[in-house]
Computed example of a mutant assay.
Amino acid sequence: MVSRISHTTIDCRDAYALSEWWRQVLGYVDDPDDPNEPGHEECLILDPAGPHRVLFIEVPEAKSVKNRIHFDLRPQDRTQAEEIERLVSIGATALADLRRDDGGWVTLADPEGNEFCVLMSPAERDAVLAARA
């Protein structure tokens, strides 16, 4: 017997605002049976193409240390640099640039300080792999 992950949960100060921000980042949607609204203490967003769900739950304490688990995002329709620019323009903060010629990532933080990474797009990754061959 095994367990399956039901959803990823993010503790936060403002569940609605953070769910709206991540919905825009990921292209996820609200649960049609329970749409998110301002003032909701729990907000769920769904991947329209698959089973992944992210739940935002309000907690009283502020974030105080580095995340022990985080998202690694791989842009699908733009380059890594273009995605980083887009995310910073909508409120992400750049924390660390760990890019190399053959890969790497950039660590950003969402509006509440939760860290996440942006990897190369599949096309960029394929080009790096082809250059190695």
Rank of each mutant, 00 (worst) to 15 (best):
T9M: 09
R23S: 12
D72G: 11
D34L: 03
E37H: 15
S19H: 02
E83R: 11
V25S: 04
L46A: 01
L119H: 03
I10A: 01
V106M: 07
T9I: 06
A127R: 13
A130T: 14
L18G: 13
R68W: 05
D110V: 01
V106H: 01
A92T: 05
G103E: 09
T93N: 10
I90N: 08
E58S: 07
D33F: 15
D97T: 09
E37M: 11
L18D: 04
E61F: 14
G104L: 08
E42Q: 06
D30W: 05
F71A: 09
D102G: 09
T107H: 04
W105S: 09
F71H: 03
F116C: 03
V29P: 00
V128T: 12
R74N: 10
V118S: 00
I69M: 09
L26W: 06
W21S: 00
E41D: 10
L26D: 04
D97A: 06
E124Y: 02
H7C: 14
N36V: 09
H40Q: 07
W21L: 05
I90P: 07
A130H: 05
V29W: 00
G39T: 03
P38W: 13
L119A: 13
R99D: 09
V128C: 04
R4K: 11
R86L: 08
R68D: 08
G50Y: 07
V2F: 14
R23K: 14
R74T: 15
S121R: 08
Q80P: 05
E115Y: 08
G27E: 00
D101C: 04
Q76E: 12
A127T: 08
Y28W: 01
R100Y: 12
F71V: 02
D77E: 15
L108E: 03
E37A: 12
R132P: 01
I57K: 14
D97Q: 07
A130C: 13
R74Y: 14
G113I: 01
G103A: 07
D126L: 01
P48H: 08
A127P: 02
G91L: 06
L46T: 00
R132A: 11
R23L: 14
E115G: 03
A127H: 09
P32Q: 13
P32E: 02
V128L: 11
A123C: 14
L119V: 00
D72R: 07
E83F: 02
R86D: 05
N114D: 14
G27F: 00
R78D: 03
L73T: 04
S6N: 15
P48N: 06
A130N: 06
C12D: 00
E20V: 12
A131L: 08
R68Q: 15
W21H: 01
D101S: 15
L44R: 04
V25M: 11
S121F: 12
L87M: 07
P32K: 09
D77K: 15
R13H: 11
Y16F: 14
I90R: 09
W21C: 01
R13P: 00
S6D: 15
P38R: 12
L95Y: 13
P32N: 13
H52A: 10
D31G: 11
D31W: 07
C43F: 03
I5K: 08
E83D: 10
H7Q: 13
P38A: 11
E42S: 09
